[in-house]
Nucleic acid binder design. Structure first.
Length: 751
DNA sequence: CTAAAAACTTAGCACTGACAGG
DNA sequence: CCTGTCAGTGCTAAGTTTTTAG
């Protein structure tokens, strides 16, 4: 019954597309809609049967092959792991895995001889295979390891040229070690040369010290007062603490926002004693200015501290870092990302957030769930307290979790990006994107076909996928209304977010997007699309209100299910990764020119990076000092130009002089003047490049794409190819995160 | 299954300390 | 020396995807 009904609704051709019942539904709550989707989806599935599954047989084969490989070669590993377990119990941090031996034998591969002909040579096949294929969550073939290692060793000296200079100072000439008793293993652990866990196990051993709690509240000195209705009033400790949160933010804009004030006041009152509650009924009558002043003074005082005091604080932080900032996971000491519990305060949502100003409550040990090995030494809760729970779940990666009170979501303490567990995942992400590269043509053809489908839901799916692919939009999960800011992604686009122009600015079939995406960052774009897409959009928008969903027959779970059928591991966000990385690679190829010097090459890199950031809509507020700093730079450039022409004049003079005198001394003078000119030219060039770069970067944030979307091996390969020191591209943190890529990518790496 | 919860990635901004320039 | 600037980093919100529970 309902099946027939909705089937007719599904038809694209003929008659009004949205029957009354559809419209009705749209006005209803979202949940209703979803149920309908799901039903339809179900029906679809059974109708279509398994035509899609053919594609997979191949993959399964591959998997099997890999398994074989694994079984044939892992015994050594197993032993090694056993060893490790033992060692863990002894808790020695620096026991080294004995991998080296395995790298001892020579690989027949000749590295030097593969520069050209990258694409089809069998050698290249090898190097491709060496990259992990990712759906084999298991092993990388041994051989590879060997190759990698050898190469790595050969390469190191070159790569580290610059580094060595720096490190010498640090390591060599600082025997006292600045108190940083760093007992890190001398050689960095190359987890990427090791076997990975299968079957969802994330670790076998995990030991840590638990979280660091926010410092307890320190009551204000009695001379700092709060006034209500013009009269001083002493607050209870709890009420006072919350009041200080507000007082600290006083010169921030959102303390003027209604929603913020309302939420704050409501939550504040919850912390008050009945007496306070009875008295304090109007936020407008509250005067926090004395408190505000006090905190400002505190900040000043902190700035004005002596070096010794600052050093002391620094040392204390370092001590805490050493004590709590690391864990032992499977025999290796790993850095924890966020070992400090988020302190209490007022929630600052982004954009127009309905919950802004709410009290984010203090987290106590009783809220904390600890996750660690059974056979590890459990972290101690602070004296007189206890953990909510200690569990031993090695199917997850977190060490500590608690439930946050604003959204009721769970927060986690996890490892640093440089850790094995994050790195492997990251690597895997790029491998999935590379697999998409291999079948993206097929998928594109498919969705183009689907634009013609007679089923509405298929068409919507296909158009949405087209946007995700072409524009790198996010998937766009539906969100609960009133819980978060009103932002959308692809699947949750509403009619009001796009405008259609059959013709504009000399282009046909233009779609104008204007909506708020993640973090309430505006996405604005005018793009010409294919005619069929355009027609489809018109169809989707027919008879809808502005606030109706554009893709009313689609959500992220439908879309992702579809994608999963097209390629194993494929989800919407893989397209972002894929398109970002492939764009970087293409742009680098296009923009880098042989003869440019290093700064110019780096400008090219940044431009390539920028192309990606624009694609992904990674924006930033222009720095507050932007105009000024631009001006400063211009001044410098002008000065440098002056200097250059002066130097040129001098050179001319010297030349003339040398012509006359013809002695050694004057020749030398010419040489040195020449060098001076050259040097100044370089400097000028550098400044100009810097200016260009900065100007172009005004509202674009490069960091996000660099960190999350660009296969680091592309950048590493580029650096190696052009002899650019990796430090010019990645700072220290980034180098740590991408250590795997820096170690393994060769100059001919191809995404 | 399907919704909700959990897990994990991605995101911009505020703060800070090192360092360049006066 | 002091001051301003800016890159680097910490923070935590806000997404997506995966897993679980009902």
């Amino acid at each position: 019954m309902s099946g027939d009904h909705s089937h007719s609704e599904d038809q694209v051709d003929g008659g009004p597309r949205f029957s009354d019942s559809q419209k009705h539904k749209d006005k209803f709550k979202k949940e209703h809609k979803h149920k309908d989707h799901k039903k339809e989806k179900e029906r679809e599935k059974s109708k279509h049967g398994n035509s899609d599954h053919k594609d997979f047989s191949d993959k399964k084969h591959k998997d099997k092959e890999k398994m074989k490989h694994k079984d044939g070669s892992t015994d050594k590993y197993k032993d090694k792991y056993k060893e490790k377990r033992k060692e863990e119990k002894i808790k020695s941090f620096d026991c080294k895995v004995k991998l080296e031996k395995e790298n001892g034998f020579d690989s027949p591969l000749h590295l030097k001889s593969e520069p050209e002909n990258i694409f089809h040579s069998p050698k290249n096949d090898k190097s491709l295979k060496r990259e992990r294929d990712d759906d084999d969550y298991e092993i990388k073939p041994k051989k590879i390891k060997t190759e990698n290692d050898k190469k790595a060793k050969k390469r190191k000296p070159q790569v580290e040229d610059i580094k060595t200079v720096k490190t010498k100072n640090k390591k060599g000439e600082m025997p006292d070690g600045k108190k940083k008793a760093k007992k890190e293993p001398e050689e960095k652990w190359k987890w990427w040369e090791e076997e990975r866990y299968t079957d969802g196990v994330k670790w076998k051993f995990l030991e840590h010290k638990g979280p660091v709690f926010a410092p307890p509240y320190e009551p204000l000195p009695s001379n700092v007062r709060f006034y209500y209705d013009g009269k001083p009033m002493v607050l209870s400790a709890d009420a006072e603490e919350v009041a200080t949160f507000f007082a600290k933010m006083l010169d921030h804009e959102y303390t003027t926002k209604d929603v913020f004030r309302k939420n704050f006041f409501k939550d504040w009152r919850k912390e008050m004693t009945p007496e306070e509650k009875a008295k304090i009924t109007d936020l407008k009558k509250c005067d926090f200015s004395e408190m505000h002043q006090y905190f400002k003074a505190q900040t000043e005082a902190r700035k004005a501290m002596t070096k010794e005091e600052k050093l002391k604080i620094k040392e204390e932080n370092e001590r805490i870092l050493q004590q709590f900032g690391f864990c032992i996971m499977d025999n290796h000491k790993e850095r924890i990302a966020n070992f400090r519990i988020e302190p209490p305060g007022l929630f600052r949502g982004r954009g127009d957030h309905p919950k802004m100003g709410m009290l984010k409550r203090r987290i106590r040990p009783e809220d904390i769930i600890i996750n660690c090995s059974k056979d590890s030494k459990y972290p101690e809760p602070p004296p007189g307290t206890r953990w909510k729970e200690v569990r031993h779940d090695n199917k997850v990666t977190w060490l500590v979790s608690w439930t946050e009170n604003i959204q009721g979501s769970i927060k986690y303490i996890m490892l640093n990006p440089s850790s094995r567990i994050k790195g492997e995942k990251d690597w895997q992400k790029y491998e999935t994107a590379r697999r998409l590269k291999k079948c993206v043509d097929r998928i594109r053809n498919q969705y183009r076909e689907d634009w013609k489908s007679k089923e509405m839901r298929i068409r919507q799916r296909a158009v949405a996928l087209y946007f995700i692919d072409k524009l790198a939009l996010r998937a766009g999960n539906e969100k609960e209304e009133g819980e978060t800011a009103d932002t959308v992604g692809c699947c949750s686009l509403r009619v009001e977010h796009i405008k259609l122009y059959p013709e504009i600015d000399g282009q046909e079939y233009v779609v104008e997007f204007d909506f708020l995406g993640k973090d309430s960052i505006r996405y604005y774009n005018k793009v010409p699309v294919e005619k069929r897409v355009f027609k489809n959009l018109q169809l989707f928008m027919e008879n809808k209100e502005p606030d109706d969903d554009l893709f009313d027959r689609l959500n992220t779970s439908i879309l992702n299910k579809h994608l999963q059928e097209l390629m194993d591991g494929l989800t919407a966000k893989v397209f972002r990764t894929y398109n970002a990385s492939i764009t970087l690679q293409a742009q680098l190829k296009e923009l880098t020119s042989e003869e440019e010097n290093i700064p110019a090459k780096i400008l090219s890199y940044n431009r390539a990076n920028r192309a990606v950031a624009i694609l992904c809509n990674h924006q930033r507020a222009p720095p507050k000092t932007f105009e000024k700093s631009m001006q400063n730079l211009q001044t410098k450039i002008d000065a440098k130009k002056e200097q250059l022409s002066a130097a040129k004049r001098e050179l001319k003079g010297a030349k003339a002089d040398a012509k006359v005198r013809k002695d050694e001394k004057s020749k030398k003078a010419v040489e040195s003047k020449k060098k001076a000119v050259q040097r100044i030219e370089d400097q000028l060039m550098k400044l100009e490049v810097q200016a260009t770069d900065r100007e172009e970067n005004k509202q674009i944030a490069l960091g996000t794409s660099k960190l999350n979307y660009l296969d680091p091996r592309i950048s590493v390969a580029w650096c190696k190819k052009w002899g650019i020191p990796i430090e010019k591209i990645y700072n220290k943190t980034q180098r740590e995160k991408f250590a795997w890529a820096i170690d393994m990518a060769e100059k001919d790496y191809e995404f």
